[in-house]
Amino acid sequence: MISESNRSVHTAAPHERWLPRPSLRFVAVWRRNLRVWRKLMVPSLIGHFGEPILYLLAFGYGLGALIGEVSELPYIVFIASGILCSSAMFAASFEGLYSAFTRMHVQQTWAAMLAAPLEVDDIVLGEAIWAASKALISAAAIGCVAVVLGLLSPWGVLLALPLIWLICLAFACMALIVTAVSPSYDFFLYYFTLILTPMLLLSGVFFPLEQLPSLVVSLAYLLPLAHMIEIIRPLVTGGALHVGLLLHLLVPIAYTAVAFCIASWLFRRRLLR
């Protein structure tokens, strides 16, 4: 008699689903990570402020003095808006790769969560949103510095932050896919070499995309960072805004949706065996 009642609902079993079915319990996962971050806030914030300031100094003032204007912006403004985006991308990626792997594999934090009424899908969603939140923190830190230096518009940065969070969900979910198939930390190097570094160099962070051969430009637009820069740069530099910019949001959103489904499926397959 059990088997019958069992079978009728059996199709709902997590390991058999194709699509994720997260619940609101993901908030507990996000809050756990936030609580840990708050304990280590000071060193973490120093990192968020320190590194981009170095980049701004080196590229902006150093290189910028040689270059002058790029795309009708002083080079330091151009690069500040680019670094705002690329740093957020890296913050989300690091969290989705190294930190998530630590919690899943090394610390077995996820195993403890799975013994409670959390499902794999909840954990993946909580981690993705947390990684995007780390990107938001990083962008806010750089945004502050750039605004104080008079490089970026304060209102533009304020408007950009929620968009940055949204877009960085895509980077978070992409990183989680890699984590889901990763046997160890070393594996992440492939992702850096094949995806993140090319994206950083060829998406318009350091120079305008138009400088590149058109084939490379088309390839760059296949990945989310180029679209992120298309939206965020005019927003924070007081450039011309138009509704068409919102179309660029579709790419990161599509990446988020697809990558979240793939990552959840891979994690379910890995953890429910």
């Binding site: 059990i2 009642s5 069992n6 609902v9 059996h10 997590p14 009424p117 959390l118």
Partner: peptide, 18 residues
């Protein structure tokens, strides 16, 4: 087949784990 605390597993594992 498997029932824990009256719940079919794995279909209602989350409710049971609570």
């Amino acid at each position: 087949s498997l029932q824990v605390l009256g719940e079919p597993i794995p279909a209602r594992a989350r409710e049971m784990r609570a």
